[in-house]
Design a protein around this nucleic acid. Structure first.
Lengths: 202, 202
DNA sequence: GGAGCTATGAACAATCCTGTCAATAGCTAC
DNA sequence: GTAGCTATTGACAGGATTGTTCATAGCTCC
């Protein structure tokens, strides 16, 4: 009849379900009863483990944000840093953003203005690393004048916005621009080339 | 005491309020009572004019989408098509997307998967016009090989995603990348240069 | 001024959602 | 086995939200 799990396992199971709801409906669309039903428990059980709906939402948002951070770090760690691998790097980041719906989570939270306490997704590290690589590569080619770090930051921001944006509204935009609905791959190829060319130019 | 307006004026007034709610809370967050209160009417009045909450949401979404289309067309019409004006064009489009919160509307609707029947915001026209300009400019410089139209489409898509994305999650992303929170202007400058250089290259 | 149309709102109904409470059932330790 | 802890749940309360009904008030036209 009743299945009993320890608190940690129950929390995880509930969070798994809640995250799916977060991805599809956003934080405002998370309903205790629905989450409970999909998790195979009653809604007071959810309240027992999280105290309140708001606390559940906070918990699932925190966990998602953390997972996004991990995904980003992983995807970047897989990269060799070689320039012709930029496409592969973008693909990795893109996949980690779409696979679990994390890009949608980012957008939901941005729109809802949700406070992200554990917002440990940092791009400045990416910017610094990219800038170092860039300077080294220019140096090898005998170019002294390093570009300002703001320029590299802008490039990283552009990549981030393009990847997140395409993960959320890509298909309709492609179609709208006269491209095939699943032109994501070729679009990211375009983006990779554009960024690589810029980062290598003086 | 009761103020009586004709049906059209009442609808418009209600839609104005509803659109504000659409921008801030998204379609799912639109509440009949709140909209009614902010519009200075009772909620049955709203139902009287729109029939149901869902119909109200549809109506306000349609109207917003249409306004977005108008804003985009206007912003582009203001442009001279000159290359050094690309920044100004992007600024115009960006402003029309932020001023009324239309970028947020686009994102809300994309996330909510709302069906946009009157989705007459078309980018393919922009792509075609841009491609023509591009070919002419290359021809003047004696370059024969025109780039494929997909390349131009990719550039337009990139601009669209970057502008919409920055209007929705710009500030936190800038800050996250180590830039100042209101680096929007300089970011769009970067984007304009990058796009202009690409569109002019062979 | 009076008739008719309709925009408006108060009151009510039905549903849904969050949160509380008390009882119960499963696990662990002895 | 038994005691104790706690994860779990059914039942209920309170509030919010959508939608209905009907009476009324304001405008227009004659």
């Amino acid at each position: 009849m009743r299945k009993r799990r320890d608190a940690a396992a129950a929390r995880e199971a509930i969070l798994d379900v809640a995250e799916k709801h977060l991805v599809t409906t956003g934080p405002a669309g998370i309903r205790l009863q629905e989450v409970a039903k999909d998790a195979g428990v009653s809604h007071p059980t959810v309240l027992h483990h999280f105290g309140s709906r708001e606390a559940l939402v906070k918990a699932v948002c925190s966990r998602s944000i953390h997972a996004i951070h991990i995904g980003l770090v992983d995807a970047i760690a897989q990269s060799t840093g070689e320039d012709d691998q930029l496409k592969a790097l973008l693909e990795g980041v893109y996949e980690s953003l779409t696979k679990t719906g994390h890009a949608r989570v980012l957008m939901w939270l941005a729109l809802a203005g949700e406070r992200l306490d554990g917002a440990d997704v940092r791009l400045d590290g990416v910017v610094a690393a990219t800038h170092e690589l860039r300077k080294q590569r220019l140096k090898k080619r005998g170019i002294r004048r390093a570009p300002p770090i703001e320029d590299t930051a802008h490039a990283v921001v552009l990549a981030a916005l393009a990847l997140i944006g395409s993960a959320v509204i890509g298909p309709p935009i492609y179609e709208n621009a006269g491209l095939h609905e699943d032109s994501g791959q070729s679009f990211r190829g375009f983006l990779a080339k554009l960024l690589a060319r810029h980062l290598n130019a003086e």
